[in-house]
Simulated assay, not measured.
Amino acid sequence: MDFGLSPEQEAIVEGVAAICRRFGDDYWRACDDEARFPRDFHRAMAEAGFLGITMPEAFGGAGLGVTEAALMMHTVARHGGGMAAASSIHINMFGPHPIVVHGTPEQQARWIPPLVAGTDQACFGVTEPNAGLDTTSITTFATRVPGGYRVNGRKMWTSTGQVANKILLLARTTKKEEARRPTEGITLFYTELDRSKVDVKRIPKMGRAAVDSNMTFIDDLFVPEEDRIGEEGRGFSYILDSLNPERILLAAEAVAIGQDALDRAARYGRDRVVFGRPIGQNQAIQHPLAECWTALESAWLMVMKAAWLYDNGKPCGAEANAAKLLGGRAGHNACLQAVLTHGGMGYAKEYVVERLLREVLICRIAPVSEQLVLSFIAERVLGQPKSY
């Protein structure tokens, strides 16, 4: 069992880290304060070719696996940018996967190169206000018309909808009650985000202000037939291709944010002197930070195991979900402990850890709840009856 990185993987980590070091705490603080998309960072990653790390080489990508994507996203989130940095680019890692797997050669040639170059930005239109995690209950509907479809409906938590020009859109083409199974009759599209037909309203939120989240109202949007991915009615199965990579990458980001916060807390513990001694000399400071380190390292091992399984074509649902659960919790606990270690200054923006705490909380909520993760593992691994 080899826990080391290959020369190619080390080069990815070093190359991404070099870019990230160009964007310091002041940059990310300004993006957060101004709710400004980190365009300069996004452009730098695109120009270095990293947006295509998992895309086929035939279309300008690197053709690498989820392991390399996880290493890349871990590095991105490790250098102070937190979820703002990660969320600005990570849809490129998992979102277009249905295009790679199920798109026609014409679609791949048309869609993938602009994503790799960063000239196209995509948003993810899946979640709905009255469906939540129950994707089979979406009601956004695509009606057949000559040459394509007319789509009407609503989406929720559409990230990067303010800056995107494309949308990966999931819609029903058969009503749920008329389908043979709840998972049937759902169709996947990748199409232009026509703002004359799509109203994208920003949601004010607790953290990650730099990367917008939105309520999306779709009113009579025409989608050409050539923008449908795969067969009509099979979109639910296609979207599943993205779910395990998404969980793995989010877990890698959560671990990285926790490690960044832990580094800041450890540094503060060495430097902050109270009652004539560094606060890090006190076990009340040492022990919680040491526990955070062990939890983060353990979660990272699960991330790497899940990524290895995925890249080697082996089942990884339980591991990907476990990585998301462990990574989210470990990252959140480390950020919380970092704030507490800083005391009153942990509440100050100057020391960054308050922003990391606000942003890492996303990793415990999205893209799937901890309760559904535990239900999945109980059912699929431990053989328990389905509870929902």
Rank of each mutant, 00 (worst) to 15 (best):
T67R: 10
K176F: 08
S88F: 08
V16H: 00
Y190D: 03
T174W: 14
N321H: 02
S213C: 11
A334F: 01
I19Y: 01
M215S: 10
A320S: 13
W308I: 02
Y347W: 08
K305D: 14
V200D: 00
L243E: 06
Q281C: 06
S137T: 09
R234D: 15
T294M: 02
G344P: 00
L169H: 04
D311W: 05
I91W: 07
A58H: 07
P288R: 04
E106M: 14
L374W: 01
W300R: 08
D26V: 14
Q337M: 07
A18V: 06
Y238I: 06
L170V: 10
Y149T: 11
A330C: 12
W28A: 06
N282W: 13
K201S: 09
R380F: 00
R78K: 14
E178D: 13
L340I: 05
V303Y: 04
L361Q: 12
G148S: 14
P182F: 01
I248W: 06
M72F: 12
E14W: 03
T187P: 04
Q337S: 10
H102V: 03
T160N: 15
P113R: 07
F222A: 09
S242T: 12
E34A: 12
V16W: 00
L336D: 03
A254R: 00
N152V: 06
C31D: 04
W157Q: 01
T75H: 10
T294P: 01
E379D: 08
F124N: 04
I218D: 05
L64S: 13
G331K: 08
L115P: 12
Q107V: 13
W157A: 04
E128V: 02
A131R: 00
G344E: 09
A307W: 00
L168R: 05
R202S: 05
D33V: 13
G233P: 03
R358F: 14
D33K: 15
T119Q: 12
V163I: 11
D263A: 14
R110D: 14
P385W: 00
V66S: 08
K155M: 06
F275P: 03
R247Y: 11
V163L: 02
L5Q: 08
Q107N: 14
F23V: 10
T294K: 06
H287N: 10
R208I: 15
A171F: 04
V198R: 01
L170C: 11
L249Q: 12
I229T: 08
V273S: 15
I138E: 04
V368K: 02
P224S: 15
P224F: 12
F94V: 13
P224T: 11
R39D: 08
L382W: 01
Q9V: 02
C335A: 07
D260Q: 13
H74F: 14
A35V: 02
A86K: 03
L361D: 09
E253Y: 06
R181C: 02
E34D: 13
G276E: 13
E8V: 09
E226S: 15
D219A: 10
F236S: 02
R355M: 11
A378E: 00
G80K: 04
G81N: 03
G52K: 07
Y347P: 02
V303C: 07
D263K: 15
G343F: 01
A210D: 08
D40I: 03
P204G: 07
D271L: 15
C20K: 05
G125C: 07
G258D: 06
